[in-house]
Design a protein around this nucleic acid. Structure first.
Lengths: 329, 329
DNA sequence: TGGAATTCATGAAACGTTTCATAACTACTT
DNA sequence: AAGTAGTTATGAAACGTTTCATGAATTCCA
């Protein structure tokens, strides 16, 4: 607050209404109160323009109606969608969101968890990369895309199934030689299974494939080298690419354009995530779509469920394929 | 918090360290304390894993180190960038952000302002559309893109200059017949000046132009009709378009594609905002770039400046042109 | 060496809630 | 008519901090 006389308190309302403090509290919280009392109090509230002070309430109840969301940033459109939907779900349930951007900084991930506890949030939803992260036991905690232990519920989409689906789709679209490209992190998380699903399906269908994973520290230009190495007589030997994320797919497509390889005529490309620019417009690339809305819903309802014991430890939600112009269909 | 013994308090630390409560407080807040006391307290803090309780502090000091950011959503990449940069600036100064999505809902805008006051935030940054919004006087308030009164600082980019720049650029690029397209809102705000700048420059340079503004309620298909009406012998009579936002520009370009009009060969298109997909990748369309980082910095430093009297009431930041493939250069 | 000036820890009060034991009713039973 | 059960308002305590008046200990100077 700033200058000016400070906001009215419950005591002010009580005095104005000629009623006890506790009675005001019960009216404000919608508890059982005699009709005439309720009316007097409500009149006084309107009169004074009273609104309860959340700090006071939080101090007394030791709960803030706030959930912390820990996420790298909001620049990547996938994260931005996630933030949006999680916020919507929280708002429905009258919770607030405390947003924490880590920028992929591992020490910040730790710090934010501490800060969340300090602020007495009622739960944490976290999408993190620190391999040594310690999840506090004394606070409802839900992770996205990374499984820690059976006592920490994890929400993810069906990454394995998505990889499988991508391979099948490429085959259907007539591809005969494929590759999987990703920016590797040494971290093992749910999205790592995209590759596994892809590989399994390729093996089962007898579809040839190669894997190219950029390890931590290798420059992006390695992809250029990799692709160049696979050009014979000015023609790329792959006719289908499955790429770890839409973001990377987008960059690879720029690269292909620069190399005068046409998409989807010469090579068809499928990404992963389901990014659409400007909300409900077309998909940026052909892609395996993550069900963001459902993921958000699952995170929120899980983190808010009191009886965490009865909650599954891995919630895996179905993905779907969407055309985005970088495949023939 | 949840189950388990509750977190240690200052009293616990004081007892552990054999020291008075107030002393602990002063150590925690980095105030002057005798060396031996400080050491004893810090040891006890480490020992117990103490972290201060923000609710208690907030109640006592009537301030939360939190700024509310009221914004439509985070789906539009421009908003998403803004959120990101504002959060970074706040974090630098050790403030938290309370994020409020209005979804362009005017009643929500009002509600969030009340909620912000209720939560005793230390200030509000708001990007709103409600024409009748009442700005509270008793709390630091900064608006983005909309000027309310001299007592409420407004941060915006140089919309007029940007419109002007767009016209000049189109002329430079050889355009001889132009149009300005926008989705109109009846609201007068800073971005409305984009048109004014464009018109002024066109008039001054003798560049022909038309205006097409979609009013509230008119369907998007009106744009299709408008463009069709301007086709003669299969050729669009405009060779340059300036469009109110990148988001709309993107949709218009999809439309042009559908109509078999080539961009930029047949018509060059300039948008406004400076959206880049996937962060630092290329601009989505050729555009007038808003200096988001500077806007964020201005918002934050203004809302946090104690002496609001000496702050300008309209902070207008320079824009720039960026090539994004929808113009010849 | 005694007194004044200075430094600095102490402990209680206050912030605005919620909650709980108590008291004041009312209505019912016998 | 008197006692009991049931309802509901009351007022004080407690949540964890910050802050302020107080007093103890030290330093400094004459």
């Amino acid at each position: 607050m700033a200058k000016g006389k400070s906001a009215p308190t419950m005591a002010d309302v009580a005095r104005e209404a000629g009623v006890a403090l506790g009675t005001v509290s019960r009216v404000v919280n919608g508890e059982q109160v005699g009709e005439e009392y309720r009316e007097k109090v409500q009149a006084a509230i309107r009169q004074l323009g009273y609104r309860y002070n959340s700090s006071g309430r939080a101090l007394r109840t030791d709960s803030t109606n706030t959930i912390a969301l820990i996420i790298p940033n909001t620049i990547n459109p996938y994260f931005s969608l996630l933030v949006h939907h999680i916020n919507c779900e929280l708002e429905k349930r009258n919770y607030k969101m405390m947003l924490c951007f880590t920028e992929y900084d591992r020490s910040r991930e730790i710090e934010f968890i501490q800060m969340a506890q300090q602020n007495r949030v009622d739960g944490v939803i976290a999408l993190t990369y620190n391999p040594n992260l310690v999840i506090p036991e004394d606070i409802p905690f839900v992770t996205i895309d990374r499984f820690f232990s059976v006592s920490v519920p994890c929400v993810a989409s069906d990454n394995f199934g998505g990889g499988w689906m991508a391979a099948k789709k490429l085959k259907e679209l007539g591809c005969t030689n494929t590759a999987f490209l990703r920016i590797g992190s040494t971290l093992t998380h749910e999205p790592s299974k995209r590759k596994d699903g892809f590989v399994s399906a390729c093996v089962e269908m007898g579809l040839p494939f190669e894997i190219m994973a950029l390890e931590d520290g290798q420059p992006f230009s390695e992809f250029e080298r990799f692709l160049s190495d696979h050009i014979k007589d000015g023609k790329l030997s792959f006719d289908g690419l499955f790429i770890g994320t839409d973001s990377l797919a987008w960059r690879i497509i720029q690269l292909l354009k620069k190399m005068n390889i046409r998409v989807p005529e010469d090579v068809q490309v499928i990404g992963f995530d389901g990014i659409r620019i400007f909300g409900d417009q077309d998909y940026v690339v052909s892609t395996i779509v993550q069900p963001v809305q459902e993921i958000a819903e699952a995170c929120v309802s899980t983190v808010l469920s009191r009886h965490l014991s009865s909650v599954p430890s891995l919630i895996c939600l179905p993905v779907s394929y969407a055309y985005g112009g970088t495949t023939k269909e």
